[in-house]
Design a protein around this nucleic acid. Structure first.
Lengths: 224, 224
DNA sequence: GTCTATAAGCTGATAGAC
DNA sequence: GTCTATCAGCTTATAGAC
């Protein structure tokens, strides 16, 4: 596990070119989607022909896959510098990420658009996002387990629901924020929701929704 | 405000045909996205040629717009039968919706895919989703105002953050659930998150995240 | 490594017969 | 109202010159 991740495929000049293409692809796929964006547009942005791009990546599908991997490696590298937080600091890190994201609309949009598009039939990014969410969920769940253990709380289902919910709010807020930045305070709302969910795990309270009379439509035995 | 919404454009036979096309379009756009889905596929599903579809709707863009309007009218009609809930019952209604959605993966996917895709450049569904979220947010916010007023709580920012967050979790959970239904309990997690957020509004607690030492990276004056 | 040229296919949309 | 025929345009991808 040294510094160099894989053997350089070729001259550093070529690798730099590949990185240029990957950066351009993030921007185009982010602003047009994968199905909507074209190799031509990516080629224009980086100043070559679409044939040149296919020379480097073989196919459009493969380009998307490498775009996602590259983005992930970059983000993970950033994280590792601050050696991955755990326990309560992880939740603080997620809030901080939301504040940072407020100034990176481009990358936020790329993830928002591509993750949702990845659920469509035969989408080349599907495996990536499936794995990504699985990993993120287990990281957040582990943080919950740490803070819960300290306080003697053990509620596996709750931890699972809370973990997936925290990632879900962050994603959902991004979509609403991208649609109307003036109507949604991305960072502040993310902080509020994450605090609400963490609090619900650490200090369970009776459900505020459980008092109505005629809820579940199914005719159950009437409890006087 | 009688039963018929607009004057029938033509024979009821034609309207039925249009509805068939709209239903097919939801399915195709839902499973392939708007950019990825084609008029040909929609035509095949309904048993005609793509020229026939263009005869009815004029353009692919216009078809999407009418698809979204039609879906919305259908859903709203369902809601009005149970005359739109408000206050605490609205939150219960949202939870119930999550339970129903667990058995309607097709429609869930259509909304998830199209709403995220709508943030891309010049997407014909953008105006629809902008308005949709604006409306939903204000409805949820109003429900919060009702229950807050009963208890003498007034926190406009909190209500805004909570309202947008509730819609956000529901959306975000749907994406994760569509990617891996075995890993996410859509309804249960939605219920947990909504309860957590409602509780946070009604019974504010000190932030569980505020105790760490070296948070915000910026070198502020050290408070000993 | 990048280009030009070319292929083969599909796209949304139009015109006109029935 | 639906079809066939046709269009121009654009898509990804390949082959081969430089």
């Amino acid at each position: 596990m040294t510094a160099q991740r894989r053997q350089p495929r070729s001259r550093p000049e070529t690798l730099a070119r590949r990185r240029d293409i990957l950066d351009a692809a993030v921007e185009i796929f982010g602003s047009k989607g994968f199905a909507g964006g074209t190799l031509q547009e990516i080629a224009d942005q980086v100043g070559m022909t679409h044939a040149g791009i296919l020379h480097h990546f073989g196919s459009k599908d493969q380009l998307l896959i490498e775009v996602l991997q590259h983005r992930d490696e970059t983000d993970v590298a950033d994280l590792e510098e601050q050696h991955i937080p755990d326990g309560m600091p992880l939740f603080r890190h997620l809030v901080r990420t939301a504040f940072v994201n407020e100034h990176r609309a481009g990358i936020v949009q790329a993830y928002a658009v591509l993750s949702a598009e990845s659920v469509t039939d035969d989408h080349p990014g599907r495996a990536f996002f499936e794995k990504r969410y699985r990993t993120l969920r287990s990281e957040v769940a582990h943080a919950f387990e740490v803070v819960c253990a300290e306080r003697g709380i053990t509620t596996p289902d709750t931890i699972a629901d809370a973990s997936t919910s925290i990632l879900a709010v962050m994603d959902g807020l991004q979509v609403q924020w991208l649609l109307d930045p003036t109507a949604v305070e991305l960072a502040r709302a993310s902080e509020f929701a994450i605090e609400a969910i963490v609090t619900a795990v650490l200090s369970p309270t009776p459900s505020p929704l459980a008092d109505g009379a005629d809820e579940h439509a199914q005719p159950s035995r009437s409890s006087v």
